[in-house]
């Protein structure tokens, strides 16, 4: 028996909007730790890892570890039917081939049940070791989204370089080239508007902008984004989900052919 009651139901709506374009089908894993997902895109270039910790739910019952295969587009369709202020409960009976999403309006005057068919998904779970990153950039998520969108109108790839000067996002295309430099800026009043750069070693890596733009669909989940770079590893683009966990996107870099 599984029963997860999330007062901030719109969090789940936002999570689905953030991942459904990257991944079509995925297994949601439920354990005493929380509700999680790890899935790669179909070309095995990008990976999304989601964790919503059990403590973040108002009620969390998960009698045994369960993996539920879901079509994310269908799940998003169902969650779109929940009101933004609705409390969302995810329910599944042991061995059942369906999952139920229950939506309750805040004053309990409307209760809706949406039952969705589960699917068997063969997915490869990757082991992601803890790593030391050469540079960690923390910046407003809206700023990062803006840069990715702007650069993708010029080119297909972005070079992200971190030096003592700051973090530089560069692209080039048929019509010309573009560079955006963000410097460390901690003097602003609000911490969510600041940019911080923790650099152990300068690093410069090239990534496909198409994926970066897809990751920025998670912008509504967090006011800040953390970009962790190392020359030997995929970049990690992380959006913290307040009091609940995170959504992390991993993207393998491009190399000179």
């Amino acid at each position: 028996m599984l029963e997860l009651r999330l007062v901030q139901g719109n969090l789940l709506k936002k999570v689905l909007e953030a991942v459904k374009d990257l991944v079509t089908d995925a297994n949601f894993d439920c354990s005493s730790t929380g509700f999680s997902l790890q899935a790669m895109d179909s070309s095995h270039v990008a990976l999304v890892a989601l964790l919503l910790r059990s403590e973040g739910f108002e009620h969390y019952r998960c009698d045994r570890n369960v993996s539920m295969g879901m079509n994310l587009n269908n799940m998003a369709k169902m969650l779109k039917c929940a009101g933004n202020d609705d409390i969302v409960t995810i329910k599944a009976d042991d061995g059942s081939d369906t999952v139920t999403f229950m939506f309750e309006s805040p004053n309990q005057d409307k209760i809706a049940d949406f039952e969705m068919k589960l699917m068997d998904i063969d997915s490869e779970h990757l082991g992601i070791p803890e790593a030391e990153y050469h540079a960690i950039v923390r910046m407003p998520s809206s700023e990062f989204a803006r840069i990715c969108k702007d650069l993708s109108s010029i080119g297909d790839t972005v070079v992200i370089s971190v030096t003592k000067e700051g973090v530089k996002f560069s692209t080039r295309g048929d019509i010309g080239n573009a560079n955006v430099v963000c410097r460390q800026n901690t003097t602003v009043d609000k911490p969510e508007e600041s940019t911080t750069i923790e650099m152990h070693e300068p690093v410069s890596l090239t990534f496909a902008l198409r994926y970066m733009n897809s990751f920025t669909k998670a912008t509504p989940l967090s006011s800040t984004v953390t970009i962790s770079l190392s020359s030997e590893l995929p970049v990690v683009v992380e959006y913290k989900i307040a009091e609940m966990g995170y959504i992390r996107f991993y993207l393998a870099p491009k190399i000179e052919d």
């Binding site: 790669m40 070309s43 095995h44 270039v45 990008a46 990976l47 490869e124 779970h125 990757l126 082991g127 992601i128 790839t157 090239t206 496909a208 030997e232 590893l233 995929p234 991993y250 393998a252 870099p253 491009k254 190399i255 000179e256 052919d257």
Partner: peptide, 14 residues
């Protein structure tokens, strides 16, 4: 030109 690497070059299947 650039070649896109795959995640398997960095991470192993559990």
């Amino acid at each position: 030109s650039h070649k896109q690497q795959k995640l398997f070059a960095f991470f192993t299947i559990k």
